[in-house]
Design a protein around this nucleic acid. Structure first.
Lengths: 355, 355
DNA sequence: TTGTATGCGTTATCAA
DNA sequence: TTGATAACGCATACAA
């Protein structure tokens, strides 16, 4: 084992093995070729003895390749971001890359700062899950030929690989499920759209669904600013449902655009004293571990988050290996998980005799 | 703006400004002293013109200081880990450090791999939220004089700064609250203890609380393995509470050791058809955004997670600045957030007239 | 097959 | 006050 207080270098190994630094380097990089078995042995034991580990920093400096991938997320607090991070990190690690994370904490101004910080560490490529609100650094990065993969959110004017949930499909699944469950008055609630493509696409898809099924269903989309506004909109929604004339029992349904806004909807429903499912339907995009236990269970379209992260990493790795095809768009389907919040009648399991 | 396809170096700046590399370097590092205003100006504009940013890699190589901090978390999926990460990352960034994250994905064997990977990048210190199951690399790191701060989980034989929730206090707060709410039969449910200090401490504190209040309350701790075992234990608990004779209504209460296990308890309670609060009390350590909306709301002792992360970072930064005091232990208090799950009677807010 | 020498982008030591 | 130069740890072109 090493005895030194600071890490040993390639020079230490060379001295220990009685060879030159170049030989050690060759052992490290071209083990099989260009090396006599005897020397290889000596180097090998020296490395083991000193516990030598190459310095990626020095390697990066010399090679111009850092084996680092930059991951910038808008908000690490969002479970979706975390899940993507997990998948991406794992895939990168398996390919010999380490992920440097930059969390913007929902401050879109920090986007450029993040890219620059990671850029200065010479990361070889980026996975971005950001607003693209301030596209300067990203565009510059792309212009420099550094590969970028966008996850969940497109950036205007940035023509690069894009990995995301198929929002149109997801919303259609939502709408159809609500239709099948007998809801006739729908509302999509999202956080303020801004330039966030996922929210915009979901809103478009929702409006399109309503238009396509105009005979059976009506609905509108809401950008939920404050909580008061949300509550007012829910009341109005229910009022509209009440006067619906096509035979339904007048129960409206809401689609939550993501887990965060869904929690706000749940809060509003609670404040109104309504029961999920019976008084109002609720369906959310992005399933969470706690969704089954809110009220009668919150129905959800589950995103393949891990898969999205892995896919993003794979795309990036392909680009790093020189692939030069036009920008790709990879849309994955979500899967519906129906629970009590979209069942217009449901009973709580009764207390059992032997309990 | 830069016109180059690859980043400009200090040499480019020197050429552009008509000075030597050394001068540029001095401008960067000792701006105020040792520099004539005229030259400083020239360097400044050259830097701006080329969009020059120093290479932290090269700096690290030369200085032996990477300005990198390694953060190893047991499971990025755990909201607690994320919250700590957030706080730590922010504090580090404000101090000019970047955080390199390594997620172990709950595979304790990867602990050494993580430390070594980050170590090879010459991170200057570590923040660890890991099991310490395989202490080799951590001990070696500490021996090399690299500072380590432990968060939430101690490592056997590793005498370094430790930042955590005050588990004894938290459990006492839990116990007292349940006592005040009239529960007399208690159970602490944790995930398997293993070598995880937080779980062990909470269990000890719980047993101690029961002993200290033996006259009023009884209880036991459960390491919840499978879900079936958990359900059986809950039934047994309720049975014990039923026969309690001190006048109470025979309602037991459970303390969930963390958010993850609490969700399992919620599931079990649901499967049993019990109502939270009335049929069984529930109190969890670590508050979450969804806790208010599970049943009548799940009571919690909220951890100051952000604070914990920041504090860990501060401790580490102090060590990096050469502080050489004995290892410190910083325990922060949690705060109780009482909700319906610890109210033995509670009514859902009724449907309102004007809805 | 192995060793020598050079340079990656910086900082620090020396002269000037 | 400024400039030339060596060194950080490594990989590679070239020489042997």
């Amino acid at each position: 084992m090493s005895k030194a207080t600071s890490r040993s270098t390639i020079a230490d190994v060379a001295r220990e093995a009685g060879v030159s630094k170049a030989t050690v380097s060759r052992f490290l990089n071209h083990r099989d070729t260009l090396l006599s078995p005897e020397i290889a042995r000596r180097v090998e034991v020296a490395i083991a003895q000193l516990g030598y580990v190459p310095s990626p920093m020095a390697q990066a400096l010399k090679r111009g390749r850092s084996r680092l991938i930059g991951l910038v997320v808008a908000d690490i607090t969002n479970p979706f971001s975390v899940a993507v991070l997990r998948g991406a990190e794992q895939a990168c690690r398996e390919a010999g890359y380490l992920v440097m994370l930059f969390n913007m904490g929902n401050e879109s101004e920090r986007e450029n700062a993040g890219l620059q910080a990671l850029s200065s560490y010479r990361v070889e490529g980026f996975i971005l899950n950001t607003t693209g609100h301030d596209p300067g650094a990203a565009l510059e990065t792309a212009r420099q030929g550094k590969p970028i993969v966008l996850v969940d959110r497109r950036h205007e004017g940035l023509d690069v690989d894009f990995v995301s949930l198929d929002n149109t499909h997801a919303i259609t699944v939502c709408g159809q499920h609500l239709l099948d469950a007998g809801y006739r008055e729908l509302m999509l609630v999202t956080e303020p759209l801004g330039k966030i493509s996922a929210r915009i696409e979901r809103t478009h898809a929702f409006n399109e669904f309503i238009r396509a099924n105009a005979g059976q269903v009506s609905g509108r989309a809401l950008e939920a600013g404050g909580q008061a506004e949300l509550i007012a909109s829910l009341k109005a929604l229910r009022a509209r449902a009440m006067v619906a004339t096509d035979g339904g029992p007048g129960v409206p349904a809401v689609i939550g655009g993501n887990a965060v806004v869904t929690l706000r909807i749940v809060e509003a429903v609670e404040q109104l004293g309504w029961r999920l499912g019976t008084d109002i339907g609720l369906l959310t995009i992005d399933d969470t571990p706690w969704a089954p236990y809110i009220g009668p269970g919150v129905s959800a379209v589950s995103q393949p988050t891990d898969e999205l992260g892995r896919l993003a990493a794979y795309c990036l790795l392909q680009r790093l290996q020189g692939m030069d095809e036009p920008a790709r768009e990879m849309l994955l389907h979500g899967t519906l998980v129906a629970r009590g919040s979209t069942r217009r009648t449901h009973t709580r399991r009764p207390l059992q005799q032997d309990d």
